[in-house]
Every structure is written in structure tokens, then in C-alpha cells.
């Protein structure tokens, strides 16, 4: 009985008007949650936490670098799950959501790369080192850009979304291989001289801001995903009756 209700509720999400309504209701709450956790996280990261004994204040970059890196990868995972649902059940709202996830994931990848190389300047003495993690993030960025470019190149948005979903899954198979091969490559070409210090052995007082920032990036991703999906839905259904009724009422 209860399962039946859950199943029906899940199927309802495939209907554009209900999905639209859900995005409309959820998105402000997610944005509010993001704002709160961001403020708390930034306050801890910039004021409360004392400087690191090895890296002084430069380690504070960690509080945006690590959550962004996590979210860039978690975003890819979310996108892949949506892509599987889109390819197997051909639900249009999930196709739209998978496509909306790509630019947000790419944005987090850019944050991760930029802050990583800025952090590298005082620590390694150079903006770019062919560090395994940075290099695989760079490759991840190109996968994201490829997905966005492929989707944008199609006239027929539904066909474009399906083809891009295949590319998402190809990328999903490849990302672990790429990461492993790049790690192998860097350990062969350079000694273990370059590595982040103090990341694995973290003091307990350094953790709360990290957790708050991770929560904040997760909420940001979800909120932006819902907003972007809703926009894409409006764009694709602009000639349809339900959109006209919804927006026409507010004229």
C-alpha cells in the first residue's frame, strides 16, 4: 500500500507540471539552507580556526578547494545516475536534469582547479604542477565540457540529451581509469616530493568548517540543479498549454 503510493509519487515526478511545481517549492528552501551553512562555514574557516603550524593561513584555501573537488565528482555521479534513468526509462525530466547538472559540475571543477593552483603557488612554488589529482581534475573538466558541447550542438534537444547521456556513461567508465593512469604516470615521473601536507592528519578543530562547507556545496548543487532544470523545461515547453497557463496567469 505504502509502496504503491511511493511508486505513484515517483512516477508523477516524470510529469513536467508536477516536476515544475516541485522545483518551485523546494528551491527556496535549498537556497536558504545553502546560505546558512555557507555563512557558518565561512565564519569558522576565516575567523575561528587557528593557522596551521606548517602552512600558516594558506591552508584556509582547503575549505573551498576540497568541498568543490568533492562536489565536482559527486556531481558527476549524480549526473550518471540521472543519465541511466533517462536512457532506460526515457523520462524527459531526468534527461533535462542530467543536462542541467553538467554546467554546475563544470563550475565546481573550475573552482577546484583554480584554487588548487593558487594554493600550489605558496606551497610548491609554482602555479601548476602535474600532480595526479590536479591533472585528473583537468581531464574531468574536459569531459564536462564535452558533454555540454555535445548537448549544445544538437538542434533536437531530446536527441541531444540522449546522446550526451551515453557520453556521460562512457565518461563514468573512464574516470577511474584516467585517475589511476594519471596517478601511475606521476609516481613514475617525479618523486613523492610534491604532495599536500597535513591533509590526511587533520586536527579535530579544523573539521567543523570543512563539514559546513561540504554541506553548503551539496545544497548549492541541488538548488542550482533544480533552478536550471526548471528553466530548461520552460524553454522546451514554451509553446505548450501548461506553461502558457502558468506564466500567462502572472501577466
Amino acid at each position: 500500500m505504502i509502496w504503491q503510493k511511493i511508486k505513484v509519487g515517483f512516477h508523477k515526478l516524470g510529469s513536467p507540471p508536477i516536476f515544475y511545481r516541485l522545483c518551485q517549492v523546494l528551491s527556496p528552501w535549498l537556497w536558504a539552507g545553502f546560505a546558512v551553512s555557507l555563512v557558518i562555514g565561512l565564519y569558522y574557516a576565516l575567523y575561528v580556526v587557528p593557522p596551521d603550524y606548517q602552512q600558516s593561513d594558506s591552508f584556509r584555501i582547503l575549505y573551498i578547494h576540497v568541498p568543490s573537488a568533492w562536489q565536482a565528482m559527486a556531481g558527476y555521479l549524480v549526473m550518471s545516475i540521472l543519465a541511466v534513468i533517462a536512457l532506460v526509462w526515457r523520462i524527459r525530466t531526468t534527461e533535462i536534469m542530467a543536462m542541467a547538472a553538467a554546467p554546475i559540475g563544470a563550475a565546481f571543477t573550475v573552482i577546484c582547479l583554480a584554487t588548487g593552483s593558487i594554493w600550489g603557488r605558496p606551497m610548491w612554488g609554482t602555479f601548476w604542477a602535474w600532480d595526479a589529482r590536479l591533472t585528473s581534475m583537468l581531464v574531468l573538466l574536459f569531459i564536462y565540457l564535452g558533454i555540454m558541447g555535445l548537448y549544445a550542438a544538437f538542434e533536437d534537444k531530446r536527441k541531444g540529451a540522449r546522446v550526451a547521456c551515453i557520453l556521460i556513461l562512457v565518461g563514468l567508465v573512464n574516470i577511474p581509469i584516467i585517475h589511476f593512469s594519471v596517478e601511475w604516470w606521476t609516481t613514475l615521473h617525479q618523486g613523492r616530493g610534491i604532495s599536500f601536507v597535513g591533509e590526511s592528519t587533520m586536527d579535530a578543530s579544523m573539521k567543523p568548517p570543512l563539514i559546513w562547507m561540504i554541506v553548503a556545496t551539496k545544497l548549492l548543487f541541488t538548488a542550482a540543479l533544480l533552478d536550471r532544470s526548471r528553466n530548461e523545461l520552460i524553454d522546451q515547453d514554451r509553446r505548450k498549454g501548461w506553461i502558457r497557463r502558468k506564466l500567462g496567469a502572472s501577466v
Binding site: 581531464v139 574531468l140 574536459f142 569531459i143 565540457l145 564535452g146 558541447g149 555535445l150 550542438a153 557520453l167 562512457v170 565518461g171 573512464n174 581509469i177 584516467i178 589511476f180 593512469s181 594519471v182 601511475w184 604516470w185
Partner: peptide, 15 residues
């Protein structure tokens, strides 16, 4: 587009 799509996929082969 082709070259952007291929580049990430061939990284392991090249390495």
C-alpha cells in the same frame, strides 16, 4: 567537438 570528446578518453592509452 570530436577532438574535445576524444582527448579525455585517450589519456590512459597515451600514458
Amino acid at each position: 567537438l570530436l577532438s574535445i570528446l576524444i582527448f579525455p578518453l585517450v589519456v590512459p592509452v597515451l600514458i
